[in-house]
C-alpha cells in the first residue's frame, strides 16, 4: 500500500506552529507511523508553495491523498476531532 501523505504548512517558529508539529507527532504515534508520510512546509521559506496550495492560515494540515482534499486549520489540539475529520479510525489502525 502506498504511503499516505500529510502536508503540514507552518510559519517559522510561531507558538501555534510548534504546537501543531507536536500534536501531529503524537497523533502519528497513536495511529502507528507506518503508512503515513508527513511533509513539513514553512511558508516563510517557501511562499511559492503556500501560493500554489492557496494557504491562508497557518498551521494548516492538508490531506491530499483522499478523493477530496481535506484541510485542518489550527494547532490540532483536539486529536480525536482531527482523526475523525481525516476519516481515520483510531482503534483499527492502532
Amino acid at each position: 500500500m502506498a504511503a499516505r501523505l500529510l502536508r503540514l504548512y507552518i510559519a517559522g517558529n510561531s507558538a501555534s506552529s510548534r504546537r501543531a508539529q507536536q500534536n501531529l507527532e503524537r497523533l502519528r504515534e497513536s495511529i502507528g507511523a507506518h503508512g503515513w508520510d508527513v511533509e513539513i512546509i514553512d511558508v516563510l521559506d517557501r511562499p511559492e508553495l503556500a501560493e500554489s496550495a492557496r494557504i491562508i492560515a497557518t498551521p494548516t494540515l492538508s490531506y491530499e491523498d483522499s478523493v477530496r482534499t481535506r484541510r485542518i486549520v489550527g494547532d490540532l489540539s483536539d486529536t480525536v476531532r482531527v482523526l475523525e475529520f481525516l476519516g481515520i479510525d483510531q482503534e483499527d489502525e492502532a
Binding site: 517559522g12 510561531s14 504546537r19 494557504i55 497557518t58 484541510r71 485542518i72 486549520v73 489550527g74 489540539s77
Partner: peptide, 13 residues
C-alpha cells in the same frame, strides 16, 4: 475542499 478549524492559528500563510 473540506476545511475544519481546530485550535489557534495565524494568517502567516
Amino acid at each position: 475542499n473540506d476545511e475544519l478549524v481546530i485550535g489557534d492559528f495565524d494568517l502567516a500563510g
